[in-house]
């Protein structure tokens, strides 16, 4: 475990000593910030209209639901931005080691493949969690000026983290297969996008295939989390997905050590 932590720490240092970290952080914060502003202003506008209407018709105001109208769509939005950002976080995890030749250090010191992969996976997961912090501030504003329900926000973040861990394990695997970071990023993004939109295919697929496509689709499992429900079947899906990604990464790393 100490060695896993050493890798995690090293990943963090190289990430934050390089400009990439700040580009990713800035990009993510800017995008989630802009969308928060847009959602917020349309919600405020709707509330305002509602207030005017209730005055005109002398009815009590409807009291619009901020969880339903703002927080839920906003979580979907963050999920989509994650899809674009996480491949940039995962692309370097292994490809850079291959390119720089530092794999020679990792493979010739007494580190097991599991320690290497776990360290890298945890580094990716921690970074993805760090990316979410600014969005927590944005949503915190809602609690300062209004009173939304609290638990759906928590479950939304649990969902984002779980989906993030699935993306990261997959991106990590792609990164073990190439020394080219650009290819790792594009590959990770393409695969994530495919798994995202595969559910749409269910509309056109036959009755036997449709449930399968819907099950595989990574975003379908996010819906409940955004609505405030932590369902074990969706939890299991993301954990299984993460596990498979880590398993493939391990096999990919170990394949170098198999006898030709």
């Amino acid at each position: 475990m100490k060695k896993v932590m050493a890798i995690l720490e090293k990943e963090f240092k190289s990430f934050f000593y390089s400009p990439l970290a700040y580009v990713v952080l800035a990009l993510f914060t800017a995008l989630t910030g802009v969308f928060f502003y847009l959602y917020l202003s349309s919600f405020v506008e709707a509330s305002f209209m509602d207030a005017i209407r209730s005055q005109q018709y002398r009815q009590p105001p409807q009291k619009l639901n901020v969880n339903l109208m703002l927080i839920r769509p906003y979580f979907w939005n963050i999920a989509l931005i994650t899809l674009f950002t996480l491949p940039i976080v995962t692309m370097r995890l292994f490809s850079e080691e291959k390119k720089q030749g530092t794999v020679e250090l990792l493979y010739t010191t007494p580190l097991s493949s599991t320690q290497i992969i776990l360290g890298k996976f945890l580094a990716g997961l921690t970074l993805s969690a760090a990316l979410l912090i600014p969005t927590m501030f944005f949503q915190g504003l809602l609690f300062v000026y209004g009173d939304p329900e609290f638990w759906p926000v928590v479950s939304g973040y649990i969902g984002l983290l779980l989906m993030g861990s699935a993306f990261i394990s997959m991106g990590l695997f792609i990164s073990t297969t190439t020394e080219n970071q650009i290819i790792a990023a594009i590959g990770g993004f393409a695969l994530a996008l495919l798994l995202w939109i595969i559910g749409w295919g269910a509309n056109f697929a036959g009755p036997s295939l449709a449930p399968l496509l819907e099950y595989v689709s990574i975003i379908n499992h996010f819906e409940d989390f955004a609505q405030g429900v932590v369902d074990t079947s969706h939890l299991a899906y993301y954990l299984l997905f993460t596990f498979v990604g880590i398993y493939f990464s391990l096999k990919s790393v170990e394949s170098v050590k198999w006898r030709a």
Binding site: K10, K13, Y17, S18, T102, E104, L105, T108
Partner: peptide, 18 residues
Amino acid sequence: VRTITGYLPENPPIYPDL
């Protein structure tokens, strides 16, 4: 073997950012 062996590869395995 890896515990008792130190290795300098052809290209030094350094992390330029550290």
